[in-house]
Write a protein that binds this DNA or RNA. Structure first.
Length: 440
RNA sequence: CGGGGCGUAGCGCAGUCUGGUAGCGCAUCUGCUUUGGGAGCAGAGGGUCGCCAGUUCAAAUCUGGCCGCCCCGACCA
């Protein structure tokens, strides 16, 4: 993409409403635009990141054996009356009346809808287990939306729902998501710590929140110092094996949200315990028959008896993750995208747009990189060098490839790694080879 | 919902107290000169001062009502 035509309205100054760094940087980089409180448009740069985050979530869900479907944003009130949540949910749920005076709602979550689907078709214990998910926009009419996409009213969420014949099966489904979540966040370069969590109004007795430590986080948490240098490397596991030992191994390092932390019963000695703040990016629940029972979602058992499936639900805040990644990865000059979610792989900077040689070389590099499968943002504008570098640093692409007249005299270009700031003078071919290689 | 703040050009702000032709910086447009870390000069365009009433010869400015946004708290799969 040529920057001269790309719709990326960057700002030199920080809009006054933005309080935290991720919100400020998303506005300055032209990633989002607020439409009303807690509701945003995703502009091209931001949308590219959102789609990459979504795709990683999708791939790891699929890898775990979950199946993707898509449920609507608007749901009938009657399903929520069946579960009893229509009255309970309160003003946070956006309620709508259609032209026939039928009561609808904009879905804040989908337990009722998925349970309705499953009960319609799943009639035998042999059809279980099932784990179905979708990635869909949700609306929760938060009392006080804030922090940009971190606490919006409309937000993109991956939510899935497991149905098992018994508690043992449900625990396995839970563990599969636990491992899938560790993999998902690790791929985004995040350290998301699984913490014992309150189950809240969703009910149930087993729940973990995946939390990224950050001073701007809204959750108060306690954890073992061991987490601070824990390696969150990806786990290559067979999801069908017994995952309980692995999960327990991860849970052996203490971490809990403030609601679940009991100072008198904490297993971690005080000198090893840290109080911190964090951003919740995922939450998994096992809640048994809380929905299957009132909604009468029954399957036949081996002896013809009725079995009420054991359920769990598992959420990842996809749009929130975009902000959370920035909170976790930035410097004073701007965003530093992890390679896996960067909106482009390479920023190509033509320092002297209009100069025949610089234009020709830049254009050639641009094409060669694109044919090699790289996503390239080519700054072909006639701006000053300082403005170009500032823009590139702000939007935080993993690599910057700089073409300028001074370097070209020696046949060299400069390759800069955004994360480390390391710069190298290389021949054009060497620079292209370096970019073709897997990231360090 | 309680407390506080703000609303003036795309962004950041001054002007409001003390009523008298709507300003500054950045951004945008034109021209020339520039270009290795947010360039210079010259010129130009852009605002029903959130909305509605009221007071006044005259309202961005005073009064009342409404709307929106932000912050603290309560709230929060």
């Amino acid at each position: 993409m040529r920057l001269s035509v790309f719709f990326m309205p960057t700002l030199k100054e920080t809009p006054s409403e933005a309080q935290i760094v991720s919100h400020r940087l998303m506005l300055r980089a032209g990633m989002i635009r607020q439409s009303s409180a807690g509701i945003y448009s995703w502009l091209p740069l931001g949308f590219r990141v959102l789609k990459k985050v979504e795709q990683i979530v999708r791939e790891e869900q699929d890898r775990s054996g979950a199946q993707e479907l898509l449920m609507p944003t608007v749901q009938p009130a009657e399903l929520w009356r069946e579960s009893g949540r229509y009255e309970v949910y309160g003003k946070e749920m956006l309620r709508i009346v259609d032209r026939h005076d039928r009561e609808l709602l904009y879905g804040p979550t989908n337990e009722e809808l998925i349970t309705d689907i499953v009960r319609a078709y799943v009639k035998s214990y042999r059809d279980l287990p099932k784990n179905l998910y979708h990635i869909q926009w949700k609306f929760r009419d938060e009392v006080r939306p804030r922090f940009g996409v971190m606490r919006g009213r409309e937000f993109l969420m991956k939510d899935n729902y497991s149905f098992d014949v018994d508690a043992k099966g449900a625990k396995h489904s839970y563990n599969k998501m636990f491992v899938a979540y560790l993999r998902t966040f690790a791929r985004m370069g995040l350290k998301a710590i699984p913490m014992r969590a309150d189950t809240g109004p969703i009910g149930g007795d087993l729940s973990h929140e995946f939390i990224i430590l950050a001073d701007t986080g809204e959750s108060e948490v306690y954890c073992d110092v061991a987490w601070f240098d824990a390696d969150m490397a990806r786990l290559d596991v067979d999801f069908e094996q017994d995952l309980e030992p692995l999960v327990q191994q991860w849970l052996s390092k203490y971490a809990a949200t403030v609601e679940k932390h009991d100072p008198d019963r904490c297993p971690v000695p005080p000198e090893r315990l840290r109080k911190a703040r964090g951003i919740e990016v995922g939450h998994i629940f096992y809640f048994g028959t809380k929905y299957s029972k009132p909604m009468n979602a029954l399957v036949a058992g081996p002896n013809g008896e009725s079995i009420t499936p054991e359920m769990g639900s598992y959420g990842i805040g996809v749009s929130r993750l975009v902000g959370a990644i920035i909170e976790a990865s930035h410097d004073e000059n701007g965003i530093i995208w992890p390679d896996s979610v960067a909106p482009f792989d390479v920023g190509l900077v033509n320092l002297r747009a209009g100069d025949a040689r610089c234009d020709a070389v830049s254009s050639d590099i641009y094409n060669r990189l694109r044919f090699a499968g790289k996503q390239v943002l080519y700054d072909d504008r006639g701006e000053s060098a300082g403005a170009k570098f500032a823009t590139m640093d702000l939007i935080g692409l993993p690599w910057q490839l700089v073409v300028g007249p001074r370097g070209l005299k020696a046949g060299k270009v400069e390759l800069k790694r955004r994360r480390s700031g390391e710069r190298e003078e290389l021949s054009i071919d060497a620079a292209l080879d370096r970019l073709a290689a897997p990231a360090p």
